[in-house]
């Protein structure tokens, strides 16, 4: 009994300490903005948080609270409830999924807190704004670029290995379908593999590619649905001594990954899937300042090629 009450005392003391701390912080800051991030275990999410933090650094009147849901819906709902209890000035959320998080987004809006949904969407219009990339645009851009590399419309030649992301995920098909559409009617182009999923992982793509290299003597291009998979395929080809004969294309364009590999000449190109971190905060501050903001912002893509890769690395302090 005694031990338990001691524990309670510590808990109470630490709670008190945190509340006082946040309280003093709130007095000093004009806006407290909560950001509920679904997970930080992927490089793209890490970049997302970095972008958001960097943007927050630019504004002296912003205090940013980041909650990591560890890729779990229940934890993310709890994080959101926490923000609502703390009565933050605005909430940014990058939800795990639509179904489990629509309710809590509505709840936050009902509590009078403006909500900005980033990346994946939720199934309601009770929020201020959605900001995200468009995977279909990436599929289109990658398809056009690939078609050009293989000889151009009507006379393209080559065998393509496509390494799928997660087969249960919308983004996979949005990155795949427009890419295939670009090669519609191209007699000279063959897609060698039938929906082989590397689950977005470098190691699985490596194994898929090493088997494909045994299976097909003639591979001209690899399209990985993200950069780590394209790079994994590159490594497999390199280990088999065939990397020089193959063009590797990736998606995401993170400075530490895809851009670096393009700059090294390992990938031919990657297509930026921008994080909505910085833009999300800018839009939230606009809204708080009383400006009108659109209900939806779609962020475009950008081809990262050997021509502009170095410049991006320099901008990010990596070169």
């Amino acid at each position: 009994m005694e031990r338990r009450s001691f524990g309670k005392a510590i808990l109470a003391a630490s709670l008190l300490a945190t509340t006082t701390l946040t309280a003093t912080a709130t007095v000093a800051q004009d806006y407290v903005i909560g950001f509920s991030q679904v997970t930080t275990a992927e490089p793209w999410r890490v970049q997302f948080n970095k972008d958001l933090r960097a943007e927050a650094e630019l504004h002296d009147n912003v205090e940013l609270l980041i909650a990591d849901a560890n890729d779990r819906t229940d934890k993310q709902v709890a994080d959101m409830e926490n923000f609502i209890r703390q009565e933050v000035d605005a909430i940014l959320i990058s939800p795990k999924e639509s179904a489990g998080l629509t309710g809590i987004v509505e709840q936050a809006t009902d509590a009078g807190i403006p909500v900005f949904v980033l990346d994946r969407n939720v199934d309601t219009d009770k929020f201020v704004q959605w900001i995200g990339g468009d995977n279909s645009l990436i599929g289109v851009a990658a398809g056009e670029y690939a078609l050009e590399l293989l000889g151009g419309a009507g006379k393209a030649q080559g065998n393509i290995v496509e390494i799928f992301g997660g087969l249960g995920v919308q983004a996979t098909f949005e990155r795949s379908d427009p890419f295939h559409a670009a090669f519609e009617g191209e007699e000279g182009v063959t897609f060698l593999l039938d929906r082989q999923s590397g689950d977005w992982k470098q190691d699985q793509a490596y194994d898929i590619m090493s088997t494909a290299l045994r299976n097909y003597e003639d591979i001209d291009m690899v399209y990985g649905h993200n950069d780590p998979m394209a790079y994994g395929a590159y490594l497999a080809a390199k280990d088999a001594g065939r990397a020089d004969d193959i063009i590797f294309l990736g998606v995401d364009g993170l400075p530490g990954e895809g851009v670096t590999w393009v700059s090294n000449g390992e990938l031919a190109a990657t297509f930026l899937y921008p994080t909505p971190g910085a833009e999300g905060l800018r839009q939230a501050l606009k809204h708080l300042a009383g400006e009108e903001v659109p209900a939806k912002i779609v962020m475009g893509t950008e081809a990262i090629t050997p021509e502009n890769a170095d410049e991006i690395l320099v901008r990010n302090g990596l070169k």
Partner: peptide, 12 residues
Amino acid sequence: SNVLQLNNIDSN
């Protein structure tokens, strides 16, 4: 895994 992949069976 190897046999299925050589025969190009889709991941699912």
